[in-house]
Design a protein around this nucleic acid. Structure first.
Length: 833
RNA sequence: GCCGGUGUGGUGAAAUUGGUAUACACGCUAGUUUUAGGAACUAGUGCUUUCGGGCGUGGGGGUUCGAGUCCCUCCACCGGCACCA
């Protein structure tokens, strides 16, 4: 018997797969397709355990689906633009391109060493002109459709990264990448109108329910933040200006005692001119602008404001109310102005108390009386309207509807919806990204580059600035061009596109990865899309997954794609942790995948990662656990070698096979039960840990069977047939998890040289049955006896058998039997008193 | 504060439809084998016990013949959102 030598076996089969392009697939409408995708990696240098987990989960599913007869597309590529390349280039005095391609080479080798079943002919790198050309092409389409537009606005600026960030990329007021504080700046740039798609993105969330993790859908729903309410116009006294506010509580309109404008609101400046408040307002606005973002937007931040000197009229009461400006009102939500109803909104109440503004109760709670003079907690739940003239008595939804109808009739407002979602800012003042394909012309303005001039290539001879400033802004050979319209000298846009654009449609490109005249063909895309199963980390719950859904909708509208959603099913895997913390260099708890593969082999690494925890949960790394999985594969190998010679020429039992030998029946039962368990665990539950546990139990059983086998003088044909069936099934059911060892065993048995083309084993229901079953007998819900009975036993027989059991009688003696509950094939519960 | 998730042996975890709680693995204990160590194999391993049993899934309560699973309530931890009008 040869010892199990994973490194040798794995290198052999990996070379075989590579050479034969085993996992290459083609569009073929006669076959059922399955698109399995893992989130493509950023080529940061070396793979880490998070990658290993991600790809192992995906690969297991891909291999399983292939054996289930699907035409499985399983591609991999590189999210290759982005800042780390620039930082590393400055640090190591190299070029981002060189650094990136070197990393790709390293990581590709590491990934191949895991034995992942990728179609490498579809590999893409987003920094390749063949890819980013289509980013530019799509940008121009977006521009034509009015989805890409330019505006001057307050943007998030990261000083450290020297670039603008999208709202989604600001986490707790800090940069998502470098954790530095984000500043607010006025700057012009390109935006994508994702807000136009807010409703459709929201509807999509509903359709994905049950197929995506609820958590992700909730996060996206909250991020989009749709709220229903009303827009109401308040006339400014002594002026024809109108302050428009958004409120979700039009039923509290009679309680609006003052108004508050955002400091950035144009009326804040205008209304305070030539009043005694002018100087105070200017000072306040200046102060707020200098306040940092975190303090400004945190709930604990002190609410501060000043009176603008102006008054407006409450359109329903006709009263004059003061107009204030305050730091807690944000310019980019709603209209940048609010009506304040202190009795029914906590912020307004806090503010009113601080500045001695009046409070009026206009909503009456059911079983509570409110006192406007002393209340410290605003009543913000629904209740009956009071002090509201004709509306008195109306409650909640109904009340809001009636008020809106009235506002509309009077022409002073209307029911409306408002979103929290902002448009996506896509300009980046960086070098290592997709050049934006437009030209700025003094006479023609913004002019798109002609399609036949694409790609606008990123110059590779650029010298990076010391502090990371993009060289494009000063590189004459790049920016100097002629206007495509009037031919006058003009300047290219020197910003690059947010790298999230690359990842928003890369899954579409995989369907036609080398297409030269379009981003992808309708035929390929129509066949392969949507992605049937997407696997990745939850950290992209909003960013990448929302952007991709948005892109897909725009591509739908452009007639380029058909799939309503890009990712039909999503699995978000948990983190890999060690000693209770996420693996990180700073914590010194990193386990290098290469070393694990070197000492145990890829199959062991794969089995451990799948066995230690279900995919959605965090996985605690354990060296002893790895050791255990290695032991398991050695056990598999040994028991296989034990039987291999006996069954090299045998064939599994046919339809007419039957045996009365107990051990053979039991082995067949184990075989078929295990196939059922493994199939259902993968297919229905995506729980690989229990699937592997089932195989382990089966292997343990094979060791018991071996003891029986060794006692036989010679092996009869039926014995060989049953063992052969077990060995073939073991190979097949193990192959998605540990493909190399499975393939090696298959070859030794002359069973198969290409397990990916073999059919997944099918269990026979009748073979999973036992002749005898174990019945639990309870008295008053407590287990008192266990009995072996024939599996066909009738309820009546089971009942009398249980009642006459001596041990049961000890518990029922002298007691009245109230009821006997029988759960077929499982349990009897005797209720006594 | 709001929303979501999690809580089961010494450890990672099972329990799929309300029906034997702790499968599988790690660790530990003992045995076989071995010059020894390691490896391998076998058996055992929730707590407690007067050996009948009793207790046990974060705490308390409820529904039920029967609850890890359903309901209420509280606690702890994790994640998301957080002045969003």
């Amino acid at each position: 018997m040869d010892p199990y030598e994973p490194n040798q076996i794995e290198a052999k089969w990996q070379a075989h797969w590579d050479k034969n392009k085993t996992f290459k697939v083609e569009t073929d409408s006669s076959k059922k397709k399955f698109y399995l995708l893992e989130m493509f990696p950023y080529p940061s240098g070396r793979i880490h355990m998070g990658h290993v987990r991600n790809y192992t989960i995906g690969d297991t599913l891909a291999r399983f689906k292939r054996m289930k007869g699907f035409n499985v597309i399983h591609p991999l590529g590189w999210d290759a633009f982005g800042m780390p390349a620039e930082n590393a280039a400055i640090k190591n005095n190299t070029h981002p391109a060189e650094w990136t391609f070197e990393n790709i080479r390293t990581m590709r080798e590491q990934i191949k060493a895991l034995g992942l079943s990728y179609d490498w002919d579809r590999e893409i790198a987003t920094c390749h002109p063949g890819y980013y050309k289509w980013n530019q092409w799509l940008f121009l389409k977006f521009l034509e459709k009015g989805i890409a537009y330019r505006k001057n606005s307050t943007i998030n600026w990261c000083e450290d990264c020297q670039t603008v960030l999208a709202n989604e990329q600001v986490v707790d007021g800090c940069c998502w990448r470098c954790d530095n504080e984000v500043l607010q700046k006025q700057q012009e740039g390109w935006f994508f109108k994702i807000t136009d798609y807010a409703d459709r993105l929201l509807e999509g969330c509903k359709s994905l329910s049950g197929k995506w993790p609820e958590q992700v859908l909730t996060m996206q729903t909250n991020w989009i933040g749709k709220s229903f309410g009303a827009e109401v116009d308040f006339k400014v006294n002594g002026s024809d200006q109108v302050i428009k506010v958004f409120t979700t509580r039009p039923d509290t309109l009679y309680g609006a005692m003052f108004m508050v404008l955002a400091p950035e609101h144009p009326l804040t400046f205008q209304l305070s001119r030539e009043t005694e408040q002018e100087a105070a307002v200017d000072a306040f606005v200046k102060k707020v602008k200098n306040q940092d973002t975190i303090a400004r937007t945190s709930e604990t931040g002190e609410k501060e404001g000043v009176f603008t000197g102006a008054y407006a009229t409450n359109p329903l009461t006709g009263e004059s109310i003061p107009v204030w400006t305050a730091n807690f009102v944000l310019m980019d939500y709603g209209t940048g102005a609010i009506m304040s109803v202190p009795a029914h909104d906590q912020r307004d109440l806090d503010f009113a108390r601080k500045y001695n503004l009046p409070v009026r109760i206009v909503i009456q709670p059911k079983d509570e009386t409110l006192d406007a003079d002393t209340m410290t907690q605003a009543f913000s739940a629904d209740g009956a309207m009071v002090h509201s003239q004709n509306f008195d008595g109306l409650i909640g939804q109904e009340a809001r509807k009636k008020v809106c109808e009235y506002l509309e009739k009077e022409g002073i407002g209307k029911a409306t919806v408002n979103f929290r979602l902002r448009d996506w800012g896509v300009s980046r003042q960086r070098y290592w990204g997709t050049p934006i394909p437009v030209v700025h012309c003094d006479s023609c303005g913004i002019v798109p580059v002609n399609y036949d001039q694409l790609p606008v290539e990123l110059p590779l001879d650029a010298q990076l600035g010391e502090k990371g400033q993009s060289p494009l802004h000063t590189l004459e050979s790049f920016y100097k061009t002629d206007c495509p319209k009037c031919n006058a000298p003009a300047r290219r846009d020197t910003d690059t596109l947010d790298t999230f654009i690359c990842s928003s449609w890369y899954f579409d490109r995989y369907t036609s990865p080398r297409q030269e005249d379009s981003p992808f063909t309708a035929k390929d895309n129509g066949y392969w899309m949507p992605v049937d199963q997407y696997v990745g980390g939850i950290e992209h719950a909003i960013l990448h997954l929302l952007y991709s859904r948005f892109f897909n909708l725009v591509l739908n509208d452009l007639g380029l794609t058909q799939a309503k959603e890009p990712f039909d099913h999503l699995l978000t895997q948990g983190m890999v942790i060690k000693d209770g913390a996420k693996m990180s260099k700073s914590k010194g708890n990193v386990v290098d995948p290469d070393e694990i593969i070197k000492s145990y082999g890829a199959d062991t690494a794969r089995i451990f990662i799948l066995f230690a925890a279900p995919p959605v949960k965090d996985l605690e790394w354990s060296d002893q656990g790895v050791e255990g999985c290695s032991r398991f594969l050695k056990r598999v190998w040994r028991i296989f070698c034990e039987f291999a010679d006996d069954v090299k020429t045998a064939t599994p039992p046919d339809e007419n096979f039957s045996t009365s030998v107990k051990e053979l029946k039991e082995l067949r039962r184990m075989t078929h039960v295990t196939i059922r368990r493994v199939t259902e665990d993968i297919e229905k539950r995506m729980q690989f840990n229990t699937a592997i546990a089932a195989i382990m139990e089966w292997v343990n059983h094979l060791y018991h069977f071996k003891e029986w086998k060794e006692k036989q003088k010679a092996l009869s044909e039926p014995v060989k047939a049953v063992i052969r069936e077990a060995m073939e099934s073991l190979i097949l059911s193990l192959s998605p998890f540990a493909p190399h060892i499975a393939q090696e065993m298959a070859a030794i048995l002359n069973f198969s040289d290409a397990l990916d083309q073999e059919k997944w084993p099918i269990y026979k229901e009748e073979l999973t049955q036992t002749d005898e079953i174990l019945i639990v007998v309870q008295v008053n819900g407590k287990v008192r006896q266990k009995v072996q009975v024939a599996s066909g036993i009738s309820d009546e027989d089971l009942k009398s058998l249980s009642l006459s059991d001596p041990r049961i009688q000890e518990w029922t003696q002298g007691k009245e039997i109230k009821k006997v509950i029988i759960v077929p094939k499982k349990l009897v519960n005797i209720v006594v008193k």
